[in-house]
Simulated assay, not measured.
Amino acid sequence: MIRVAILDVDGVLTYFRSAWQHLHKVLGTDNWALINRAAYSSGLINYRDWALTDALLWIGVPRTWIEIPITLRKGAVELLRFLRDNGIRIIAVSGGLNYTGIPIKNYVDYFISNELIFNEDNTLLSVRVNVENKDFINELITGMGISWDDTMAIGDSDMDIPMLRRARYSIAYNPVSEEVANIARIVINSDTLYPLIDVTKAILGM
């Protein structure tokens, strides 16, 4: 039985693996972002400091430039509708940024990500770090009265390992590493999300 599905956003529901990097490309701040990323990778700054430093590169940028339209992966809406129509609650979680939640907000029960903060004039001010890791998911589903035995988790990156390890039905979708692939019960490599619908149907006995 599946009562809740936890879906990573970047790399699963979207074609790009990082909302941060995607926005850097759009705004032309890639080169400066590489410096911040190197500082984080080498341990000079922690995740929260990296996020705040990265957001500084966009300070003063109009909201309309930042909340850019994104293309969901083919089959994303169909997958979300299928889960919802079969009574499965949906948690969309991302280590990325909240602009990726705009096209899916009407299909999910929860969307949790780092949040861009804007001034009264709708220019970017900073970022609120809500997702340094995904350990908080355990508290969330427990509060919903749901067990990991009734949970399906879908992810692609190392940040998704904790939920893939605990969920009864764990799916690595286009995994970035062998470790992610090895932890999941099912591995799917595809350009679309239609295979995930087929797998879910099989789990539900449809």
Rank of each mutant, 00 (worst) to 15 (best):
residue 131 V to F: 04
residue 113 S to Q: 10
residue 45 I to F: 10
residue 145 G to E: 09
residue 131 V to D: 05
residue 197 I to H: 01
residue 189 N to G: 01
residue 118 F to T: 06
residue 115 E to W: 06
residue 27 L to E: 04
residue 88 I to W: 00
residue 198 D to W: 02
residue 6 I to E: 06
residue 98 N to M: 06
residue 152 M to D: 02
residue 128 R to K: 15
residue 174 N to Y: 13
residue 102 I to E: 14
residue 123 T to H: 07
residue 143 G to M: 03
residue 196 L to F: 02
residue 140 L to Y: 10
residue 1 M to Q: 07
residue 197 I to R: 04
residue 140 L to I: 14
residue 76 A to H: 08
residue 205 G to C: 06
residue 19 A to C: 00
residue 124 L to D: 01
residue 15 Y to G: 04
residue 34 L to A: 09
residue 50 W to G: 01
residue 1 M to H: 00
residue 143 G to L: 06
residue 24 H to W: 10
residue 51 A to R: 00
residue 146 I to Q: 02
residue 23 L to Q: 08
residue 2 I to L: 10
residue 200 T to Q: 03
residue 26 V to F: 13
residue 196 L to V: 10
residue 14 T to G: 04
residue 26 V to Q: 11
residue 31 N to D: 13
residue 151 T to G: 09
residue 126 S to F: 05
residue 55 A to I: 06
residue 73 R to T: 06
residue 2 I to Q: 05
residue 99 Y to W: 11
residue 61 V to R: 13
residue 204 L to T: 01
residue 127 V to H: 03
residue 62 P to N: 04
residue 172 A to I: 14
residue 7 L to V: 09
residue 128 R to L: 13
residue 50 W to E: 05
residue 189 N to P: 00
residue 30 D to C: 07
residue 54 D to A: 08
residue 10 D to F: 03
residue 10 D to A: 14
residue 78 E to P: 04
residue 201 K to Q: 08
residue 193 L to S: 04
residue 168 R to Q: 15
residue 67 E to V: 11
residue 116 L to A: 08
residue 90 I to C: 04
residue 87 G to V: 02
residue 104 I to Y: 02
residue 13 L to A: 00
residue 61 V to A: 10
residue 80 L to W: 02
residue 168 R to W: 12
residue 156 D to R: 08
residue 97 L to F: 08
residue 171 I to V: 15
residue 82 F to M: 01
residue 176 V to Y: 06
residue 49 D to A: 00
residue 83 L to S: 12
residue 17 R to H: 15
residue 202 A to W: 09
residue 111 F to D: 06
residue 193 L to H: 00
residue 12 V to E: 07
residue 87 G to P: 11
residue 74 K to Q: 05
residue 89 R to K: 12
residue 17 R to V: 13
residue 48 R to K: 11
residue 19 A to P: 00
residue 160 D to I: 09
residue 194 Y to I: 00
residue 103 P to A: 05
residue 48 R to F: 00
residue 107 Y to D: 05
residue 60 G to S: 14
residue 176 V to W: 05
residue 94 S to F: 07
residue 36 N to I: 03
residue 142 T to N: 13
residue 112 I to N: 04
residue 153 A to D: 01
residue 28 G to P: 10
residue 88 I to C: 03
residue 140 L to A: 12
residue 173 Y to L: 15
residue 154 I to D: 09
residue 107 Y to T: 01
residue 67 E to P: 02
residue 83 L to N: 07
residue 90 I to H: 12
residue 175 P to S: 15
residue 20 W to M: 14
residue 148 W to Y: 07
residue 117 I to C: 11
residue 183 I to A: 03
residue 79 L to W: 03
residue 83 L to F: 10
residue 131 V to T: 11
residue 188 I to D: 02
residue 17 R to Y: 13
residue 117 I to L: 15
residue 188 I to R: 05
residue 198 D to Y: 04
residue 191 D to E: 13
